[in-house]
Design a protein around this nucleic acid. Structure first.
Lengths: 395, 395
DNA sequence: CTGAAAGCGCTTACAG
DNA sequence: CTGAAAGCGCTTACAG
C-alpha cells in the first residue's frame, strides 16, 4: 500500500481535506455523520498523518531530545528507560543523543539544530559550562535536567548531600571513628556534579560527630569497579587504616569488597563498607547502600518535560526524589582488632597487596562480605531472607 | 535570535532561495563567489535547514528508528551505544523505541507510523512473529536486525551455537563428564532467540564427546542473576550432581557463583562455571566466559543501516561478529571428590540450601571462585595479572 | 550559473 | 458544519 495522504481520505469520504484534518484532530466543528465517514475512510486507507507536513504546518515537532553522557552506565540506562516510557505514552518521539565530550556537546546545543528539531530537551547529569547553558537557553524550548540543578530549568534530583550524610551517620552510629571515603575523581572529564555533593554529605556527618576527616581518609575511585579497587588498595597502604569505607557509588563499593576479600579482611568484621545507589548487583553482594529509584526520576522529569513541551504550565520546577538507606550485610560495629593488626599478622605487608606476590600468598581469599553469618547486632540486613531471590522491596 | 529561513539567507546574500539550497547542499552548479557569499550569510544568520521542510520536500526523513526490547540490560545498552555513535556520525537522527510486549510492538510496526517517520529501522534481538515480519516488510524501508536473522533483512549475529559449543568443549577438555546447563526460560515473553541456540551448542559439544545430556542436567535461569541462583539451587538438589555448569549468560553465572559460595562449594575445585558474554563484571568474578563485542556489533549493523537508508547498495547482508573464549579462574579439572560427597560432608542436606537455615550454618561462605590461588594446570586465567585493574585485552 | 514556479502534505484562519 | 485558500520552509525539475 502506498502512503495515503489527507487528500486520499478526503476524496474517499467525499469531503474536503480541511474537514478530514479537523475531524481527525478532534478539534470539533464536524458533524457526527461526517466524522464517522472520515474515520472509516482513514482506517480503510491505513492513513497516518505525515509528521513532516504536520510539523511544517504547525511549527511543533512532537519530539523531545534526551541527551546523555553515557548510555551503558546503570544510572543513565535506568533514567532513559523511565523517560522513554513517559515520552512514548504521551505520543511524542524521542530523539536520543549521546553527547560525550564538552566540545561536541556545545556544538550541538549552539548549532540551533535542536531548536528546529525538538519541542523540549532532557539532559542527564552534566555539569554545564556557562556557554553551554547560554546555548541551551537560546534554544528557546523547555529544558529539563536530571541530577543537576540550573537556574531557569526544571530538574529532578535526589538530595545527595543528606543521603550521603545519612549513610555515613549509619557508620558513625555503629561506632566507627575512622571512616574513609572513596570519592569520584574531581577531574572527571564529564564534570559530574554528583561526587562533590556526596562528599559534602560525608564531611558533614564526620564533622557533626567530631570525627577526623582529611586527605588521609580519601581516595579517588572514578565511579567504576576498577577505580574502587585501586582506591581501596590505596587506602590500605595508608599509615593509619580506617575501620569503614563509604563509597560514593556502588560500583566502587564492589571494587572495595573485592580487594578486601583478596587481602583477607572480613566484611564487616574487619571493615565495613557502604555504597550508594542500590545498583542491581548491590543485593547480590549484601551491600549496605543508599537506594534511589532512577527510573522513577526519569518518569518524573519526562512527565514534566512533556507538559512543558506541549506548552502547559511551563514554570520551572525542582523535583526531589526520595532515597532510603538499605542496611544489608556489609556494615557492622568495628571490632577491637584493627585492620592494621589483622593485615600485619596475615600479610607480608599491606603494600604487598599491590604486587603479584600477594596473590600467591597461601591464604585463600575470603568471602566478599556478602552473607556473613556472624553479624553484629546493629546491622539489620533488609532483604536477603531467601537464598534463591534477593529482590528488595521498596520503601 | 529568531529562526532564520532560507529566504532570509537568500535576501542577505542577494540571491534566490534556489541558489542557497543548491550551494548549501553542495550539489554544484553554483559559482564559487556566490557560494561564499551564501555561506557567509548563512553563518551570520545562524541558519539551519528546517528538518520538517526538508523532509516534506524530499520525502526523506534523515532518521532511523532503533527498537529495543530492553534499555537497561547490558547487551542492549551496549548495542544502542554502538549504533548511536554511527548514526550520529552519519548525521542522521536516532528515534528510540522501547517496545516491550508483542502487542505494542505489532501495533507500532503495522500502524505505518514508522513508515512516514524513518528511513530505516534497527531491531534488537527479538524473535518476530509472522505478522510482525509482514508488517515490517510493508514498512517499505530497510530493516536491520541485531541478534536475529530473518530472510530479506540484514543482520549481525555472533555464532551462538559454535561459541557455546566451544565453551562447553573447554569443560570437556578439562575432563568434565557431567556438565549442566543453566538455560534461558523458553517461555520468555520476549521470545528471545538466543537461548535455544546456545543450548544447541551445549548439546552439540556433549554429543560429540559422547557425554550424557538431558533434563537432569538442565535448569531454567531467565537470563538474570536471580534466575541463575534459583537454577543453581535447583541443580544442587538433583540426584546426581554435575561437576561443571555452563550458564547461557554471565548474569546467570554470577548467580551460580553466589549459590556455590554459600553452600560451601569451591570454584573451580568442586565445581567449574562457564558464562557467556563477557559482561563487564565477568572479570571481577574471574569468570571464564565467551567474549563478544556488542558495541562493535551495534556499529557494524548501524553502519549498514545508514548505507541502506541512504539508498546505497541495499542488498541484505548477514554479518558475523567474532567471539572468543576467555579462560579465567572459574574453570578447572574436576577433582576426584564429587560435589555430592563434599556437600554431604559439610551441609545438613543440599535441599537445605533452599531454606533459611542454611544461612545460619556455622560455616562461613567461601570465596566466589575469583582469584583461586590454587589452580589446576589446565585453567589458564587470562588477565587478572594485577590486583588493581582487571581489564582484559582483546583477542 | 541562476531564478521562478510548482509541489511536498498538512493546518488554520477566513468565509460562507 | 463545511470548503477554498494561504502558508509552513524547503527542493527540484524547468527555463533561461
Amino acid at each position: 500500500m502506498e502512503k495515503a495522504t489527507i487528500k486520499d481520505v478526503a476524496d474517499l469520504a467525499g469531503v474536503s481535506p480541511s474537514s478530514v484534518s479537523r475531524s481527525l484532530r478532534g478539534v470539533g466543528g464536524v458533524s457526527a455523520a461526517t466524522t464517522e465517514r472520515i474515520r472509516a475512510a482513514a482506517e480503510s486507507l491505513g492513513y497516518t498523518v505525515s509528521p513532516a507536513a504536520y510539523r511544517l504546518a504547525t511549527g511543533r515537532t512532537g519530539t523531545v531530545a534526551v541527551v546523555m553522557p553515557y548510555l551503558t552506565r546503570w544510572f543513565f540506562a535506568e533514567l532513559l528507560g523511565g523517560a522513554e516510557a513517559v515520552v512514548r505514552e504521551a505520543g511524542l518521539d524521542l530523539l536520543l543523543y549521546h553527547l560525550g565530550d564538552t566540545e561536541i556537546r556545545q556544538r550541538y546545543f549552539s548549532s540551533g539544530i535542536l531548536r528546529k528539531r525538538v519541542d523540549g530537551v532532557l539532559l542527564a547529569t552534566l555539569a554545564l559550562s556557562d556557554p553551554e547553558i547560554h546555548a541551551l537557553r537560546s534554544l528557546d524550548v523547555p529544558v529539563c535536567m536530571a541530577g543537576t540543578e540550573v537556574d531557569g530549568f526544571s530538574s529532578v534530583c535526589i538530595d545527595d548531600v543528606s543521603s550521603a550524610r545519612r549513610a555515613v551517620q549509619h557508620l558513625v552510629n555503629l561506632g566507627h571513628e575512622r571512616i574513609a571515603i572513596i570519592a569520584g575523581d574531581p577531574r572527571e572529564p564529564m564534570h559530574f556534579t554528583v561526587p562533590p555533593r556526596r562528599r559534602d554529605g560525608y564531611l558533614a556527618a564526620l564533622k557533626a560527630a567530631g570525627l577526623p576527616a582529611g586527605p588521609d581518609l580519601e581516595a579517588q575511585g572514578a565511579f567504576t569497579v576498577e577505580g574502587g579497587e585501586e582506591a581501596t588498595v590505596d587506602l590500605l597502604a595508608r599509615d593509619v587504616l580506617p575501620t569503614a569505607i563509604f563509597a560514593e557509588c556502588d560500583e566502587m563499593a564492589f571494587g572495595a569488597l573485592r580487594v578486601l576479600g583478596r587481602v583477607g579482611l572480613r566484611v564487616p568484621e574487619d571493615m565495613s563498607v557502604v555504597g550508594f545507589d542500590n545498583h542491581p548487583m548491590a543485593s547480590y553482594f549484601g551491600l549496605t547502600t543508599v537506594a534511589q529509584d532512577v527510573a522513577e526520576q526519569g518518569r518524573m522529569i519526562a512527565w514534566h518535560l512533556v507538559r512543558s513541551a506541549q506548552g502547559n504550565g511551563a514554570k520551572p520546577v525542582r523535583l526531589r526524589a526520595p532515597t532510603h538507606l538499605i542496611v544489608r550485610a556489609t556494615t557492622g560495629a568495628p571490632t577491637r582488632r584493627t585492620a592494621r593488626a589483622i593485615l600485619a599478622g596475615r600479610q607480608p605487608a599491606v603494600a604487598g597487596a599491590k604486587s603479584d606476590s600477594a596473590r600467591r600468598s597461601s591464604r585463600p581469599a575470603r568471602a566478599n562480605g556478602h552473607d556473613p553469618l556472624t553479624r553484629p547486632p546493629m546491622a539489620r540486613p533488609a532483604g536477603n531472607k531467601r537464598l534463591a531471590t534477593t529482590k528488595e522491596k521498596k520503601g
